[in-house]
Design a protein around this nucleic acid. Structure first.
Lengths: 338, 338
DNA sequence: GTGAAAGCGCTAACAA
DNA sequence: TTGTTAGCGCTTTCAC
């Protein structure tokens, strides 16, 4: 049932009904009675406004497109859930999309979202071709918000964590325990976040006066996947002088690395110290618990929603948040570990 | 830019452009040249069809509303990701919503989705009031699909796992190892799935000739949450005769229970055998790995998408799938465990 | 206080 | 081979 039938059933005009149901009578003053009649009829007939019609006229859909780089990463999943909740509170529905690290899929999603006239597109871009995003960001009806991965040149606000600093801090704390040979589980070289994190580790090494040769980078599959992490760990552990500390550049990699360690019979904590970037479910449940640097996911989601729902012209403000280190038991001092 | 400007720029009518761009010229035969001109213009002007206008005309939005009982449960998250992917392949965009076990939130979401005229509403209902769902299911434009929790009386297809059988099988295998006193980590009594699973455990006990008194049900928080699981485990472990085997009725409960066990210094496998319903991230990474019954999430997602996208009148078919047991190392024979 | 009418961008009968 | 026209359900300006 639509506004029309309720108007007919009451012998009123659609406009009257519309105005009453939307509380949007500028100068018009309706009789208390009319208002009541309309409200009741709407209720009784089970009227639900047709948002698509409304959107067509208003030009706003009250809809946000969230395009994630890879939902296999639990952090993205958590982010999505938090985002959706905050958006819903503000009256926005969100389309959740998963590019799965595939630029082509991302392109299709972005096109689809634009077609659906989302009011905002919140995206952690996987493709390096940002022309499309630029175009959209410059168009008036859809505001773009970048998060996690924030390529330059797009006129849009962005929300990210300071990857380099976070990883530097984590590495420093670990190195302070006496480790001198550290392995790094690397993922896709195309992911700029990972490069930054690796940079952070290098910083920490340098600050400690350690030579670059004390850093053993994994030759994984070159992909930021569980399997990639596992391959990396196996590779590192085959070395003649195995590192006493292994650092994984992402949670997905951590999960793979840990699986490989288990497989290899390497006891984390006792045989090998380990820490990773980003929390993952179960990191606290394992024995020992895994030390990680965690992104302030909740805060990120809040900021993104705020940018997405903001009114007025989009300002390309860049919010950089700080990660927090959750110290559990997986990193021991070098003596203990070996 | 819309169909209109491209029509104007070419001095054609909107209808011509529409038909060409949609390949929908029934009897009409356009000149190759015209077709080319239109295609090129659309491309150059960066035309993207306005789905909201199109939807208004067609009455279909090519959109599905997915309303989850609780995304804190990793299985739902995985389900959502799989669902979204399959739906996208069929050209559907999906609104992901999380009721968070809150009937009021669910109601709001359902209303919102109906307002947005989703073509299908796929839902694991948390509220016990199904009148609303009934109404929607009977309306012509939005088909309803139930999953996970499938209350009767709604004229809609449903997809679920055979909770009782699955848990019975899991429990039987565990009991075969000699355990005679088993603790159960219970969650919300309102969740019918949990009740069924508990029933499965009772079945197994009975089949083994064990008395009901050998079953110790946790007094948790009464909520299916991590904290609830932890409380349950603590409660059970305080008993004078502690069970040798603990079964958790859901993955969320497992996570809590395991956290509590760790806290209490109870070594899973060695001090206590443990198994749970539904997999969770890290279950395989822990030492020992946790034995679980897993739902065929992928299959469930596929079935749900198929129902949601089906054409023709909705048939209230009920698909019941089988869970699979993933046997890891957390359950040992009674002698070993104690 | 209330209604008529135009129009949002697009599709689809029906003309030409 | 192409155009005219009438809506889809709703909002909004302007008129009564």
């Amino acid at each position: 049932v639509g506004i029309r039938q309720i108007a007919d059933s009451l012998s009123l005009s659609v406009c009257t009904v519309s105005r009453i149901l939307n509380d949007t009578m500028g100068d018009a003053k309706y009789r208390k009675e009319t208002i009541e009649r309309v409200r009741r009829a709407a209720e009784e007939m089970g009227y639900r406004p047709n948002m698509v019609a409304r959107s067509l006229v208003s030009g706003k859909t009250h809809t946000i497109g969230l395009c994630l780089a890879d939902i296999a990463n639990p952090v993205f999943g958590e982010f999505a859930a938090l985002f959706e909740r905050d958006a819903a509170r503000r009256g926005y529905a969100t389309f959740v999309c998963n590019a799965g690290e595939d630029p082509a899929a991302e392109r299709r999603y972005v096109d689809m979202l634009v077609s659906r006239r989302v009011d905002a597109l919140v995206i952690s871009p996987v493709g390096k071709d940002v022309r499309r995003l630029k175009r959209i960001a410059n168009a008036p009806h859809c505001r773009v918000v970048l998060f996690d991965r924030c390529p330059g040149g797009v006129h849009a606000p962005s929300v990210q964590v300071n990857n380099r600093n976070a990883m530097r801090d984590l590495a420093s704390r670990c190195l302070a325990l006496g480790h001198e040979r550290v392995g790094v589980i690397m993922g896709s070289p195309a992911d700029s976040s990972l490069a930054l994190r690796l940079g952070g580790i290098r910083d920490a090494l340098k600050a400690k006066g350690l030579r670059a040769s004390s850093l053993v980078t994994s030759k994984g599959t070159g992909a930021t996947t569980v399997e990639g992490g596992a391959k990396g760990m196996r590779h590192i552990c085959k070395k003649r002088t195995r590192p006493t500390l292994v650092l994984a550049l992402s949670n997905v990699l951590s999960m793979g690395a840990l699986a490989a360690a288990k497989e290899l019979g390497i006891r984390i904590g006792e045989d090998l110290s380990f820490a990773g970037f980003d929390d993952f479910p179960g990191a606290d449940l394992m024995t020992p618990g895994i030390t990680v640097a965690v992104q302030p996911v909740r805060k990120m989601a809040e900021e993104c929603v705020a940018f997405a729902c903001a009114s007025g012209p989009a300002k390309p403000v860049s919010k950089t948040l700080k990660a927090k280190i959750v110290w559990r038991e997986s990193v021991r001092s070098r003596g203990q570990s070996r």
